[in-house]
Nucleic acid binder design. Sequence first.
RNA 1: GCGGAUAUGGUGUAGUGGUAACAUAGGAGGUUUCCAACCUCUUGUCGCGGGUUCGACUCCCGCUAUCCGCACCA
Length: 556
Amino acid sequence: MSGEESGRLERLSEVLKRRGILLPAFEIHGGAKGLYDFGPVGGRLRTRVNQNWLNHWLSLGNIVELSCPTVTPYEVLEASGHVGEFSDFMTVCTSCDEASRADTLLEGHHPNPDSLSKSELQSLLNSVQPSCPSCAAAEWSEITAENLMFNTTIGAGKSGRPGFLRPETAQGMFTSFPALYRHNRERLPFGAVQVGKGYRNEISPRQGMIRLREFNMAELEYFINPHEQEEHDFSSWNEISVNLVAENHGEMHLTFDVAVRDGIIRHPTVGYFMAQTYDFLKNIGIDVERLRFRQHESNEMAHYASDCWDAEILGSYGWVECVGIAHRGCYDLEAHEKATGKSLRARREFDQPRVIEIDGWTIDGAKAGPAFRNRAGMVKAAVERLDSGTEFPCEITLEDGETAIVEQEHVKRNQRTETQTGEWYIPHVVEPAFGIDRIIWHLLDHAYDESEKNGETYTTLRLSEHVAPVDYCVFPLFEKDGMDKIARLVHSKLCSRAGVVSMYDGSGSIGRRYARADEIGVPRCITVDHQSLEDQTVTVRDRDSGNQQRVHIDSL
RNA sequence: GCGGAUAUGGUGUAGUGGUAACAUAGGAGGUUUCCAACCUCUUGUCGCGGGUUCGACUCCCGCUAUCCGCACCA
């Protein structure tokens, strides 16, 4: 970052703090790392971004909104892989009490210590006995798993159950799949969105809003049938050439349509959501000249994902990942299915019914049951795998490794025709996940404008009116002669409208009040002047052009 | 987590072992016929905890937070 840029960043942060947009949280208690307040102005900015996001996706027509708990039982996040994925294995030096990561200590003794399990790390640690980086001793405590998720206990005392604050909103949407499937009349594709808080106990939060311990996120889980290709209409983006950084291709400018057709974007639904993401970001005021989509390298992608693109936005901290759009395959639903034994599947009917000839053996329960007793189940499974030509008696190997002798009388021939009209499959998921705080940061970064006015720096926050925290400021030119009365009337009239925020400001010179409004990005200021007293008209000033229009109070 | 630097009104800064200054901002009043003007009055500050000292915002220690590297993470 150049000196000039870091100066701009400092001035921007100062304005955000001074104007109540973004502030360190709990500051009177000394502050808390990785936690921020959206202040009296920022609070509504966040709400409006969230609302725009929800509206954007709900308008697609087959998407519903969910709200799931942030407190999440251990089992849920174990099933999803977070417990394993989000853990660091720590050990403590017994002589100086310094905690170290076990895998870091063992670098050089194993090609990839990060990939080892807890017990493998423990035995490697025991045999290597690395010296402590701070005191050089070589005695280590037993390895413990330190989690990047916030631990909590759900319930009190002995009945308390371990849990975490969720590290993402997605899991609640996966576990709600049965309800979503029913709600959507058992027809795919459909999606669920959720806006809410996520928590990660980051070792070292940095760079202001970029890495937080509690953050706002917004995720869409879009469930699709992998056997069918959904048609997506890209025609409204045909004129837009977007900056793509593709694996093995480098940086290129293509339309979404072409990128999907040429297989750069590997799945059309991923491409469609990238295009929708482009629209959303543009709509709330991100400068699309400073937006790019970067494809994950194959080795960077989670193992279950088949394609993943990050929307990256260029701001004071360089290119920052703000949205991730991933094709997650069936990983998540399958993981919860395995952990719970509950079906998280959708039904599809075949074009043609499939006729399957079954010709083999099964057990005769009345004979085999008493003969094999508690092993009868395993015998049944083994017998049903036998070829139709098998002759009895016959020795078979059971799944526990033991063998059993099966007599002719234990079995019977199983010959029948089965007709399958369809099957139950695990839907695939395409997931656009948005980091709202990072997006808001870049919104502010892109909107922050410094210009010269009479030799002084003049600050304007050129926020889109879709997200501007305050819609109108109402000023009496002077707070006397009845101008203040009319201004207060206009103000309360605007405020009474649903979803409109107006601020009355009567202190200081008119120029000062315009400047204050510009600094928090109010799109329009309404001024009541002497003429208003005579003909009930007011001036409406546009933030970006400074132009004023005179309109009647009733037509506001 | 490691190393370095820093912490003074809302914001930006000055300064001192004897209880704090400047600018700006905020409030009230006046003035002013539209873009941080002017005048008067006014509000508000030494991050937290401990130690040294008759006395600590100042010196020492610890903590917390911020910034910069490294590491970590996406």
